[in-house]
Design a protein around this nucleic acid. Structure first.
Length: 299
RNA sequence: GCCGGGGUAGCUCAGUGGUAGAGCGCGGCCCUGAAAAGGCCGGCGUGGAGUGUUCGAUUCACUCCCCCGGCA
C-alpha cells in the first residue's frame, strides 16, 4: 500500500497554518511548508510563519532556514520536500505539505523535468536582445524552435519566453518535449490534496485585519532590519518590503504603505485562487474542522 | 440668500449634439528553476431629477435637488 501524503492549500490568511497543526496533532504528522517566503530566516512577521511555540508541538520543515541573501526556487523546494517526505514516512509519520505557493505544489506533485538551472550569462544576453529588439522578436524565435510551448506563452511575457529559449539553448531540446518526461511524487505516494476556501469578501476582510496585526507585531522594525542586508532577488519580493521602503524614502505615509500592503496581499490571494481552482484534484473545505475530519475518516 | 465651481463606472476624473471613455479598484484567465514573480482579457453605467429646444440631449436652455469654495 502506498503511503499517504496530505496537502493543504489555499489563499493567504485563510487559516492553513492552524488547520495543519490541528491535523498533525490528530494523525501524528509532520509539517512541510510549501511557501516561497517562509523558508527565509528573520522574517517571521512578514512571511506569517508559524511561531516557535508551534514548532515545539509539531515538527516543521522548510521554515526559517535560509538566509534572505540567498535565492530560492520551485526546483529547490521540490528537491528538499521530496527527500523530507521520504524521511518522514520512514519514521512512520504522515507528511503534511502546507502552503500557498501554487507552483511549488505542482512541482512537487507532478514534478519538474530535469532541466538546466538558470544561466545568468545567457539570460542577460536574451534580456538585452528583448530590450533592444522587443520581445516579439524573441517570441518569433521561440515559435520557430518550439511552436507547442509558444502557444501558451503570450508575446509580451518576456520572462517566460526567455526561460523557454534558455532551456532549448542549453539542452538542444525544446521545452515542450522535456515537459512530457516529468515525474513527481504522485507516482510514488497516495496524494490527498485538500484546500480551504471562504467567500471572497470575508477573506479580504481577514487579510486587512491580519496586516493590521502584522504592524502591531513589529513589521516595521523587521523590514528595517531586513533592508540593511543585500537581499536576494527572490526574498526581496515579499509583499511589504517595497511598500515599507517607499514609506522610509518619504514617497508616502505609513498609513498609505499599510493600505498598499493590504491591497497587494488581496491581489496575491486572488492569483492564488486562480491557480488552485484549476487543479481538479483538490477537495475544498470551508472550515478547518471538516478538512481534518475528511483527512482522518474520508468522506 | 448672493456669486463662482461641480454632480458621468466602486473611487478619482476626461470627453462629445448621434445613448460614453482613462487610471485605480473589482472580476476572469495563462503559467516549469524569480511564482508573494511575470503576462493576457473584461466596462462592471438609469450620465443628480425633471421640463423644453432638436430628427436625435450625457452634451444646449430653464427649474429643482445635492456637494465644494467665496461673500453675507
Amino acid at each position: 500500500m502506498r503511503s499517504k501524503v496530505i496537502f493543504i492549500v489555499g489563499p493567504t490568511a485563510i487559516g492553513k497554518t492552524k488547520t495543519a497543526i490541528n491535523l498533525a496533532k490528530k494523525i501524528d504528522g509532520e509539517i512541510i511548508s510549501c511557501d516561497s517566503m517562509q523558508i527565509y530566516k528573520g522574517i517571521p512577521v512578514l512571511s506569517c510563519a508559524p511561531t516557535p511555540k508551534n514548532f515545539k508541538a509539531i515538527p516543521h520543515h522548510l521554515i526559517a532556514e535560509l538566509s534572505p541573501k540567498k535565492e530560492y526556487s520551485a526546483a529547490q523546494f521540490s528537491k528538499k520536500a521530496t527527500s523530507l517526505i521520504k524521511k518522514i514516512i520512514k519514521r512512520k509519520k504522515t507528511p503534511i505539505i502546507v502552503g500557498g505557493t501554487g507552483l511549488y505544489v505542482k512541482a512537487l506533485i507532478d514534478g519538474l523535468f530535469p532541466s538546466p538551472k538558470k544561466d545568468p550569462v545567457l539570460r542577460k544576453k536574451l534580456e538585452l536582445k528583448a530590450e533592444k529588439c522587443t520581445s516579439l522578436m524573441l517570441y518569433t524565435e521561440l515559435k520557430k524552435i518550439d511552436p507547442i510551448a509558444s502557444q501558451n506563452i503570450h508575446p509580451n511575457d518576456t520572462r517566460r519566453i526567455i526561460r523557454a529559449l534558455e532551456i532549448y539553448y542549453l539542452t538542444g531540446i525544446p521545452m515542450s518535449i522535456h515537459k512530457k518526461n516529468t515525474k513527481g511524487i504522485a507516482n510514488t505516494y497516495d496524494i490527498q490534496q485538500t484546500g480551504l476556501l471562504m467567500p471572497r469578501e470575508d477573506l479580504y476582510e481577514k487579510i486587512n485585519r491580519r496586516v493590521d496585526k502584522m504592524f502591531k507585531d513589529g513589521l516595521l522594525d523587521e523590514v528595517k532590519r531586513l533592508l540593511e542586508l543585500r537581499l536576494s532577488m527572490t526574498a526581496v519580493l515579499a509583499i511589504g518590503i517595497k511598500e515599507i521602503r517607499g514609506y522610509l524614502n518619504g514617497e508616502y505615509t505609513l498609513k498609505e504603505a499599510k493600505e498598499l500592503i493590504k491591497k497587494h496581499t488581496r491581489n496575491y490571494a486572488k492569483k492564488q485562487l486562480t491557480w488552485f481552482r484549476r487543479d481538479k484534484r483538490i477537495e475544498w473545505f470551508s472550515d478547518g474542522k471538516s478538512l481534518i475530519s475528511y483527512c482522518r475518516f474520508g468522506k
